[in-house]
């Protein structure tokens, strides 16, 4: 049989890497399983202004995460790249299965995070990667000197809009309310940026084109009026970037772990789920603030809870 770890951490974002670091320092045997790139959503975020200590010039999401990864490795956290498809969490030994392997642990910390919520308009799936995007750092380059629209009004939407102004000729923020939800300091910068424009009280209803994004229908939620935005004739295309929140990556745990109707996992203040030995940390759980700093804190708390539970037994 394969090795039985003290704790298996699912996900290598800020929550999972913090959990790995704390568990490693406690000399627990820990395995971190990540399906894609370390960092999750932070890996595709250009600017992190609000993580304490994060004032290093030129620092970005990926560079912050690279240091977290290094730190977790330094304390002995083992790593594997795999996608977990099936879980068996009841009992003292938890089993996690992928297509190629089976992993066993006495405890599991679920730090699978969340992914971008679709804008929710007609044609969206068809035009994803054809003008519709949720990753400015991936796709901004294609829109150099083109027009770009950003959907949303929170921190991410406004910060990514600002990043996009480094590439696009003009960036218009489409927001369903008449004021932004983003932090005031971010708002101030956005209002000062001559390349940023706003469409208030508006939602995108449909996107379309001829294989690449060329038009969209935008509805004013107050007047009900629908406007069609068309690509500039010389451009022949434009971009729409959606930042309207997230969907938790909790599918493998549906029907097993208690969650709310949107799929966020229920925990107590110490990250315990309804199943003994199973914890949730970071964006995947129900919480009031989803940030790098709160994710890292969750991971630390969960790892310390694992350590305490194990020292009770032994």
């Amino acid at each position: 049989m394969s090795k039985i770890y003290d704790v298996i951490v699912l996900g290598a974002g800020p929550a999972g890497l913090a959990a790995g670091l704390y568990a490693g320092r406690s000399r627990l045997s820990v395995l971190i399983i990540e399906k894609g790139q370390d960092g999750g959503q932070i890996a595709i975020t250009d600017e992190i202004e609000n993580y304490p200590g994060q004032i290093v010039e030129g620092e970005s999401g990926p560079s912050l995460i690279a240091r977290m990864t290094e730190q977790a490795a330094k304390f002995g956290a083992e790593r594997v790249s795999d996608t977990i498809k099936e879980v068996c969490l009841e009992g003292d030994i938890k089993v996690l299965k992928s297509e190629k392997a089976e992993y066993q642990g006495k405890n599991v910390i679920i730090a699978t995070g969340a992914h971008a919520r679709p804008i929710g308009c007609k044609g969206e799936a068809e035009y994803t990667g054809k003008g519709v995007s949720y990753c400015a750092t991936c796709d901004a380059n294609f829109f150099e000197d083109f027009e770009v629209y950003v959907v949303g009004g929170g921190d991410s939407a406004v910060e990514e809009a600002m990043y996009l102004t480094k590439f696009a000729r003009k960036v218009t923020i489409i927001h369903r309310r008449n004021e932004l939800r983003a932090a005031k300091s971010i708002q101030e910068k956005a209002f000062k940026n001559p390349k940023i424009d706003f469409m208030w009280d508006s939602v995108v209803e449909e996107v379309g084109g001829d294989d690449i994004l060329q038009w969209m229908k935008v509805k004013n939620v107050k007047t009900g009026e629908v406007t069609t935005v068309e690509a500039d004739e010389d451009d022949g295309m434009f971009g729409v970037f959606g930042f309207i929140g997230t969907i938790p990556n909790s599918k493998p745990f549906e029907g097993i772990i208690d969650m709310d109707e949107r799929g966020y996992i229920k925990t107590d203040d110490d990250m315990h789920t309804n199943i003994p030995g199973v914890y949730a940390a970071g964006d995947v759980r129900i919480k009031s603030l989803r940030q790098v700093v709160t994710a890292a804190a969750d991971g630390a708390i969960a790892a310390v809870q694992v350590e305490r539970s194990m020292s009770d037994y032994f």
Binding site: G36, Q37, G39, A43, I44, P62, C135, T137, C138, D139, A140, N141
Partner: peptide
Amino acid sequence: YGDGCVPCQAL
């Protein structure tokens, strides 16, 4: 792929 694309680098 592209220079700033972290998912691309992961793959």
